[in-house]
Structure formats: structure tokens, C-alpha cells
Amino acid sequence: MFKNLVGIFWLVFTASAAAHPVIFNDGIVVSSSNMESYSDNQLLYTFTNKWSTGVNHWRFSQGKEITELGLVRLNHLLWRRNADDSQANIYLLSGIGMMDSENDAQGTSEAYMGGFEFDWETRTLFTALKHYYFSGPSLADFSMTQMRIGVSPFEAGFEELQSWLMLQVMYMPEVDSTIVVTPMLRFFYKNVLWEFGSSTRGEWMLNLMVHY
């Protein structure tokens, strides 16, 4: 019973990072997610309403050791449900490129990334779950899971400022056993979204995303 409840909670009250993997046809999305422990910068072009491609740079910092990945991305909108007052999506995420680590044992090599993202939102509720898996010949495989829940105190109009109170939970079990919880504020106005917050271990977070 408890496991079921945890499972339901996981699925319903979870979330993703700031980036939208696939937007409208012929749309470009630029996004930057930044914490002290990692950064994720993406430039994606949606070439049909179900597929996008682009470039993605990751930077992971574990103590003084920094690992960077440069990937060419291919994302797919696997499933979407448009309801009257909500929208739900499942995306498949992939990337291939190179990694570079300050760790001599890892050095420079090819790198691969796979993952998925689920989100469900109304005008005042937002939930999402994102999972990434990173691998490569000389890369110690690791994963990143991000969950989010958000509440907006009011329904803003189409060209009005929308405000959200968000909570992000991030877990990278192969890198750090700590579950990082980050309360944050999210705003969006027209085609620009920005978020900022601070984690329970004092890490700042700053995210920005623009749709063109």
C-alpha cells in the first residue's frame, strides 16, 4: 500500500527542468538551467510538432572535479493529451556527443544521453518528472532525476505575468547520495520564462528559457 502511494505520488507530483524538449513547429527554444552542482544549456529547434533537435552543454561539478558534455540532441514528443483544462506530455530525450573530465581516468571520450520527461499541467498546477541517463566508454555511468510540483496563486491572461511557487527535488544517486530540494519562484511573460531559488543545502538556482 505504502509503495503504491509512493508510486502514485512519484508519478503525479513530479516535474522536469526548465527546458521544453519539443515546442511548436518551426519554433526555437533557448534555455539555461544553473545550479552550483550542474548547468544545462540547450538550443533546440522543433522541426515538426513532434520532433526537435539541437545542441546541449552540460557541466557537472563534484567538489573540484568538473565533467562537461557537449551533445547533439534529438527529442520526440511521444504522447500528448490536450484536455479542456489541462495538458499532459511524455517526451523521449536523447543525445550523442563528447565528454571531457578533469578526472584523468576518464579524460575525453564519446558520451551518450537518454531519458524521458513527463509533465501534466493546468493553469494553476504543474507537475513533472524528468530522468536522464549518461553513459560513455570512459564515463562512469550516472543518472539524474528531477521532480517538480508547482502552484500558481492566480490564472494570468495570455499576455500577463504568470507567477508560480515551485518545488524541485533532484537526485543523482551515482554522484551524490543527497536528495537536493529546491524551492523556487517561476515567472513567465509572453515568450520568456525565468526561475530562481535556493536549495536546502544552500545552492542557488537560476533558470531562463525563451521561445522564438
Binding site: I23, F24, N25, R81, A83, D84, Q87, R123, G157, H211
Partner: peptide, 11 residues
């Protein structure tokens, strides 16, 4: 239907 996010609906 599905139009809940003003950012996404800019499209």
C-alpha cells in the same frame, strides 16, 4: 483544447 500555458500558447 489543451491551451493552459501562456508561454506555450505563444506558438
Amino acid at each position: 483544447s489543451g491551451m493552459v500555458c501562456s508561454l506555450c500558447a505563444q506558438g
